[in-house]
């Protein structure tokens, strides 16, 4: 274990890749208790595409190792905010973000911040599963390979751990060399989750991860979310209100780019405080 860590550090000295097994090898296995500092802190976050002001003064905290659901009608800004958390909006022209977003204390929009490191720490799973046209194995270890890790023992270990973490290991362990594109939709989505957790992120962003899946595959992903939150902070955008109610600890309701209400999920779905929230979740608009 120690040797593996040593090798890893020598093969990937400059990527900033910090694998948690390294910490474990030093005997510090216990994660800090939950409920301390929030993982993501947003203060007056605004975003515009050109002249189009899309997010208005979003202020919210995302709790450590909890599931936070972002809900709201199409175009309310929930996915845009999600993409702010790992700077995926950088890929769009003419975007301007102001206000403060801190991930584990790191100001992710600061000029000196390494965006690759941000995206390593804040993984993402998309609506449509996007496996690469490669084997299951290569899909999962892709992030490690581009970080310069080629040691087969490390990659094997990461592959098994990640597929296990994505509740897929038992289904694919005998065919890791087969193309990921041959899997079912639900399995492909779990490959993508495995790929996201292979690089040991701290936060996983999910943008409607189940909207292209059938009910059974959806339930599997939801079960997986329950397991994942033991180790990771999860922010999920979903149009499925029942899903938000089932999987999340806190729910944030957005409307026209504003955060209308943010609170414990159980309260939001039984006794929302705001009339807009009430009308949205009872299906009276949206």
């Amino acid at each position: 274990m120690l040797m593996a860590d040593h090798e890893m550090k020598t093969t990937a000295p400059d990527t900033g890749l910090r694998i948690r097994t390294e910490v474990k090898a030093q005997g510090v296995t216990a994660a800090p208790p939950r409920g301390g500092e929030p993982d993501i802190v947003c203060r007056n976050v605004n975003l515009s595409y050109g002249d189009n002001h899309v997010l208005h003064d979003i202020t919210m905290d995302v709790d450590d190792r909890r599931v936070t659901a972002l809900i709201g009608p199409s175009g309310c800004g929930k996915s845009t905010l999600l993409r702010c958390f790992n700077r995926m909006n950088d890929l769009i022209d003419d975007v301007r973000v102001w206000g403060e977003i801190k991930v584990k204390g790191l100001d992710i929009n600061a000029p000196i911040t390494d965006v690759i490191e941000v995206r390593r720490r804040v993984g993402m799973v998309f609506q449509k599963s996007n496996p690469f046209p490669k084997s299951i194995y290569e899909n999962v270890v892709y992030g490690l390979r581009i970080a310069g890790i080629n040691d087969k023992a490390i990659l094997d270990e990461a592959c098994e751990r990640s597929l296990g973490g994505a509740a897929l290991w038992d289904e694919v362990k005998d065919r890791l060399d087969e193309s990921a594109l041959a899997l079912s939709g639900g399995q492909m989505q779990r490959v993508c989750i495995a790929r996201a957790i292979a690089v040991e992120p701290e936060i996983i962003l999910m943008d409607e991860p189940c909207s292209a899946l059938d009910p059974i595959a959806t339930l599997k992903i939801e079960e997986l979310i329950f397991q994942l939150k033991e180790k990771y902070t999860i922010v999920i955008v979903t149009h499925n209100l029942q899903q938000a109610a089932r999987v999340s600890d806190k729910t944030a309701f957005f409307w026209l780019g504003r955060l209308v209400e943010f609170g414990p999920t159980a309260e939001m779905f039984t006794a929302p405080k705001d009339k807009l929230t009430e009308d949205y979740i009872t299906g009276r608009f949206g």
């Binding site: 209100l241 109610a245 779905f269 039984t270 006794a271 929302p272 929230t277 009430e278 979740i281 009872t282």
Partner: peptide, 9 residues
């Protein structure tokens, strides 16, 4: 109908 909020109450 999976009612929520006031409908659920």
């Amino acid at each position: 109908q999976t009612p929520l909020a006031v409908d659920l109450r």
